[in-house]
Design a protein around this nucleic acid. Sequence first.
DNA 1: GATGAATGAGGCTTCATTCAT
DNA 2: AATGAATGAAGCCTCATTCAT
Lengths: 206, 206, 206, 206
Amino acid sequence: MLDQAEEARTGHDRAGDKPDDRVKRPKRDREATRARLLEAARDLFSEHGYDHVSVRMIAADAGANVALVNRYFGSKAALFGEVLAGESTLEQAFTGSPADLPRRLAEHVVRVVHRAPASPIPRMLDRSIGNPEILPILQQHMERHLVTPLTAQLDGPDARARATLAATIIMGGGPVRRLLGLDDLRAADPDDLVRRLTTMFEAALS
Amino acid sequence: MLDQAEEARTGHDRAGDKPDDRVKRPKRDREATRARLLEAARDLFSEHGYDHVSVRMIAADAGANVALVNRYFGSKAALFGEVLAGESTLEQAFTGSPADLPRRLAEHVVRVVHRAPASPIPRMLDRSIGNPEILPILQQHMERHLVTPLTAQLDGPDARARATLAATIIMGGGPVRRLLGLDDLRAADPDDLVRRLTTMFEAALS
Amino acid sequence: MLDQAEEARTGHDRAGDKPDDRVKRPKRDREATRARLLEAARDLFSEHGYDHVSVRMIAADAGANVALVNRYFGSKAALFGEVLAGESTLEQAFTGSPADLPRRLAEHVVRVVHRAPASPIPRMLDRSIGNPEILPILQQHMERHLVTPLTAQLDGPDARARATLAATIIMGGGPVRRLLGLDDLRAADPDDLVRRLTTMFEAALS
Amino acid sequence: MLDQAEEARTGHDRAGDKPDDRVKRPKRDREATRARLLEAARDLFSEHGYDHVSVRMIAADAGANVALVNRYFGSKAALFGEVLAGESTLEQAFTGSPADLPRRLAEHVVRVVHRAPASPIPRMLDRSIGNPEILPILQQHMERHLVTPLTAQLDGPDARARATLAATIIMGGGPVRRLLGLDDLRAADPDDLVRRLTTMFEAALS
DNA sequence: GATGAATGAGGCTTCATTCAT
DNA sequence: AATGAATGAAGCCTCATTCAT
């Protein structure tokens, strides 16, 4: 479908395709194509950030036509928003007793350090910051999936400020991993890291 | 474009400047134009991030011709590197007794919160992450101005890992400010914030 | 733009063309636009040389958008390579008994002199030498379409050296025509020219 | 004089400077600078061709100011013309009895093959063909230094046509060397090459 | 008279999007 | 409905040349 010049530029070959074991769908393939686009977008955005992913890369990765991005989602930015929508960032860390929240957050951070790559959504966030076009989308997602649920678990005054402090640690992880690498953190004792981070989150939240 | 206080604080005179006490200044003032380009680049990069600043914007902001960017600095990326080079991020927070380091870092963070805009360099960092072209430049800056001096003040094992944890808080500030706004943090008691952050940095560093 | 005779002779249909006998032709005709770009590139490159033809000129000449040059061919250099690829320079002169080769080469040269303009490919070669970016492309073409087939017809030692001598005459024709004009050669007796050139090629090859 | 960015781009360091053993001149240095520019231009033009040499490269190589190129010579093209003017191409080959002319030309060609690099002027010619801006300059040089003196040594009809044939061999040498390399020619017996080329020139000229 | 900073044009390439089929 | 060819804008960079000093 792509000639040589275009193939060379995108550099994506459809290796890694999951076997499509779903039953054939009634409608042509619209839902399936849409889903493939969404998945390709999530993978690429989380890998390279919004700016450095082109709609052609997404379409090529999904094995779909380029124009379908605009047809199905309206624009590249809207596709980004759709990827973000509905996917929670820290779902499991938020589930459980509020007293254990700091430890769970700490374990989440250490888990990410030792089992790269992190889940796609946080990576999308820290790799796509700085683009004014999608800033509102990012803000809305952070509000919905991080600050609001976190604040809900907090009592006392300045709950949102304390949630912001915790978000600082969580958000800082991405850029730091990218800039400093993981070697030093991995070299340290994981239990020690968890203890330190738990204390940090406690100081932020309680 | 920068308010006076910040200009004074950053102390932005290019390293390697010849002592300016010679009698004759250059005629059409290459050095002045270069400095204007550098300053415009710093302001714009810190405001919009590397990707969303064009060399034309920089030249226009500096009142200079576009070609001068390449003539004086070689490339956009090299200009970015030059902006970063020589400017320390946390100089003053690193100066003083190691025992007080966590408190000084905490005060630095709170100070930034209450006196927007933050100094340009950290903003450049968190707004420009994700561009592979300048990643090495960013890494080198972080290593030189954050991890190395921080580690130098630490004793005991895993010093670099602990420095990385502290960097997580520091780096996380930028994206969080951008995504969540400063209102909540400003609404909280500054002294309380300092206490919390001090504890967080202590947990990270000691 | 090319006169009919030459168009027929060069036989310019792209290798790898799908058999065009299918019923439906492409709607907005990618293949046709591609062919127009290729033809415009061939004409302009052969007229002005690689350096002095811009992709904008090519696109304008083909009545196509500038971006299509890069979309279809990848780069200006790759387009140049594509123009060269598959077009033989001296096909017919190489066909026949080796004993007659010198005379056929001589007749080829004289034919070019008397029927300007020469075929586009040799002109591209001698007008585009000196650009390091496309030197490998040119070398490969010369090796494939001139030296190798010529050497294949020669016996005895130093076959490639002798082929190089003949290539000297053939390659020299282009620059000489450009610098000295064709008037003097055309004023001479064609049969005499053929005799002289035949002797020259014999001295080079046998 | 050049800062890092500019130095990096030109890539020329003034190594290879001939020691300036001339006595100090009365006038500031105008003549000397002019001469250095001329020499640098000749070297660079013959190495890379007109198009791929910038006036900044020439000025840097000569250790002179860029504007002096235009001040002294009017334009880049005029400087090219000045380099060409007055320098003969085949002076010595033309000197001697007309009967030996073919052999002398042949020896000249073989000498160039075995003792690269060739003299600068012919290389300038074959590397700079194709630039319409300097075509008239090249034509004039060829006329003056190649065709006219060559024709002057010939008797009989169509003298200029025969000179053109010889020029074909001479001009073809440059491009061929560039495209095919010298290995094959150097591998052959030099005396055999001289014999072949002598016959070729005889066929062209007599 | 000489310097070198500044200029404006033009180079190739890449992108998200629209529109004819 | 869906395709993919075509578009126009913008990106960075390089150049020969001019002009203020």
